[in-house]
Structure formats: C-alpha cells, structure tokens
Design a protein around this nucleic acid. Sequence first.
DNA 1: GCGAATGCAAGAGCGGTGCTCTCTTTTGTG
DNA 2: CACAAAAGAGAGCACCGCTCTTGCATTCGC
Lengths: 228, 228
Amino acid sequence: MSTPQGARARARTEVTVAIKEAARRQLAEEGAAKLSLRAVARELGMVSSAVYRYFPSRDELLTALIIDAYDSLGEAAEKARDTDPGAAPVPRWTAVCEAVRGWALTHPHEYALIYGSPVPGYSAPETTIRAAARVGLVLIGIVRDAHEGPGLATLPLPAALRPEGERMAADFASGLPAEVAVALTAAWAQLFGLVGFELFGQFHKVVEDREAFFRHAVTGLAHGVGLR
Amino acid sequence: MSTPQGARARARTEVTVAIKEAARRQLAEEGAAKLSLRAVARELGMVSSAVYRYFPSRDELLTALIIDAYDSLGEAAEKARDTDPGAAPVPRWTAVCEAVRGWALTHPHEYALIYGSPVPGYSAPETTIRAAARVGLVLIGIVRDAHEGPGLATLPLPAALRPEGERMAADFASGLPAEVAVALTAAWAQLFGLVGFELFGQFHKVVEDREAFFRHAVTGLAHGVGLR
DNA sequence: GCGAATGCAAGAGCGGTGCTCTCTTTTGTG
DNA sequence: CACAAAAGAGAGCACCGCTCTTGCATTCGC
C-alpha cells in the first residue's frame, strides 16, 4: 500500500505530492475557482500535459485536495479531543468545536472547498465520505462517553421522528438513545452553520466578538444534545 | 428611478433583464462555475462583447444574480410569515424556516451562490448586504412579536457576551433583550447550517426523513431563542 | 545483457473562456 | 436634418482544460 519499492514508483509518489502541494498553495492563495492545472505545472517547471499523468483531470486533483482537507480537519478535531481526555463533557465538546473553527479560519479556502458549494460539479466519491465522517465521529464519541459516564439530559422526540432516530442510532451512533442521535445530527449541521457564516462574511457588522459568540453558541449546542 | 421614459432606456432595461434571465437559466442548469458570459450572449443571439455594454464583467453579472436571489429568498420568507399572522410564535417560526428550506431545494444553485463559498472572488458589495438581511429581519420580527405578546423564555447570557448582546440588540434587534439577540443570531446561522448540509449532500446516508428532521430541528431552534 | 514494453515529459493543437480594442451601425435629440 | 451618444460586430489577446503524437528514459522478461 505504501511506496511499493521501485525507484520509479517512488519518484511517482514524490511528484504526486509535489503537485498536491503546489495545488494546495494555489488553493490557499487564490481559491478553488482560480486553481489551474497549467499554473501548477508552471510552478513545478513541467508542461501542463505532464500533470495529466498524475491526475486525469482538474476535478480529480480537487477531489484529492478535498480528501486531504477532510483528513486535516478531522485530525485537528481529534487532537482537540485528546488534549484533555479527563475533562468534563461540555468543555471537551466546545474544545472540539473551537478546533473546527480554528482550522476553518486558518484554512478558509480548503474549508470552502469541503463545506461550501460543491465546486467540481457534482462528484462526491465514496472515498470522500469516510474522510468526511471523521469530525462527526469525534463529536459522537464525546457524547457517548458522557452517556456512559455522567449521563445525558435527553429531550423528548416526536413520534414521527422515532423510527428515524432509531435508525440513526443503529447506523452511526450505536449505544446512544434515538433522541440523542437526532439532536447530535442537528448540532453537527448547526456547528458548521456557525463556522460557515463567520467564514463567509455573513457576520459582517453583525457579530463583533466572534470568539465569545462562538463559544456561547457551541455551549448551547452541547446542552442541546444533552451534555451538562 | 424606474424606466426614465426614453425608448432607448426602455430597451436597455429590457435587454438587461433578458441577460439576467438567460444567466439565471444557465445558473440553474449548470451552476455558477459553468456560467459563461459568452454562452449567455449566444443564447440571446448577440455577440459576447455586446453583453459588456450591460454588465462590465462576469462578476458584476453574478453579483446582480446574487442580489436577485437574496430578494427571492427574502420574499419567500416574508410570504411564509404573512400566510397565518395570527398563529402562535413557534408555528410562525417553523413556517419561515421551512420556506427557506423549500426555496433552497427548488433553487439549489442560487442558494449555493449566496450561502455557499463566495465564488466570484471576494466581492460583497454594500448593495448585497441589505438584500441579505431580509430573511434575518423576518425571523427578528417573529421573535419581537412574541416578546411583545406571549413573552419569551430567556436564557442567561455569560458576562463576557453581555456588551456584545447589548450592541446586537441596539443594532438590529431593537426592543429585544440582549440574550435573545445573541440566541437569535446563533439560530439564524444554525438554520442555514441545517439547510446547507441537506442541500450539499452532507446528510447523504445520514438523514432519511429530511422533512421531519428539519421540522424537529428548527423547532429546537425556536425554543433556543425563547419561543414557546 | 539486450530487446521490448512501459512510463514519462514535451510540444502542438482544439475549443472554450473573460475581456479589450476598433470600427460600424443605429437611434434619440437639439 | 445633422450630430453625438449608445449599441452591436468583429478581431484579437492571454488564459484555461484536455487530447494527441512524438521522442526519450527506465524497467522488465527472456
């Protein structure tokens, strides 16, 4: 799976990561819309057609960047979760949320790539799905720990949503009550609403002290899923 | 302000709206990334350089579409608010939220244009800000009505966020308590997090009964701002 | 060890894009 | 009616994604 020996293969993976690095640099500077395969080739001193030996199309290159971005964000979230494993549920939750926000603020174009409009057309390959789930899994883990530890303050679930909640719990939140699975999914989406609004300028002239506002809002999200 | 007489001016506005219509059609079919001024010109039977007499650049055309989209969404929200003015606060709130969701589902590319990544680079002219505020104003109005009527169940605000909340209330939520202004702003962002996640495919294999889930989630948002 | 198969870079080229010029035609108005 | 302003037409520039063919190097099978 890793470098399968051969000097040739080694050179290939090296060029591949060089292309991704140059592309990521362009992405950070100009945004996804301006990312151009030809410019990447120029930066690497090769001709544009050579890049197609490594990525069959611009969209494939973008997809690779998307997966890397999901991984990077997921790693940031996991790191925040693990820095103080003994902390109470709510601080752990807010720490992860703030890590997500921090990553988004330092990688705005990459964030836009994965949580903004799907720019490369409509390609969401299965490979991206696993990567996309990492942040969600971190949040689930915190809530599960709380459920098995100090317990959760659950809210009632309307009857119409009960089967959906049972399915959710079975699918990706095993061990958690249905109403928590539903609340958690909503909080997950709402977290990215907060981050996206700040990042995309919707809070311009609306929220000034973004840090404090965010902390307060995600604390509210934590309470919404039953953490105390 | 409207058509200043002259047949020439009339023709100009006609061509202008024709260009916008063609552009909106392309936007709906292909998305913002594929929207091309030359294709618009082709569809209208004119040469590409002629379009530049009406819109100085592709970005300006996109900006016009953005403003129209904000207006269209705001109108949908206002319509939902006005259909049953005597209803209780929570149903009024959820009706507006569902109107936002419905508009987003029927105008996905336009929604992506205004709440996805800012595609035309980084242009957020002042003119768009007024248009962007309409949905927010609808939500504020509902909460204000409830505040002056049945009252709100407010939650405490951390001391660090009190000045921010006071400023918010003074700026755009006059008559509402500071903690409600803060909660309202958070709910506003969270609403679009829910809509965006559904629209951009993050709920794929996660949420099945989207309608019921959304209704439940926005009811939670309503409670979060103090509506009962 | 050597020829053949394979991998890779280079270059030219196609159709498309945004945008800018110049030139001509149309048209409203003094 | 004449003239100036507005609008359209066309060519052209630099860039884009992508394809194809052509040489060259490396690797593999015999």
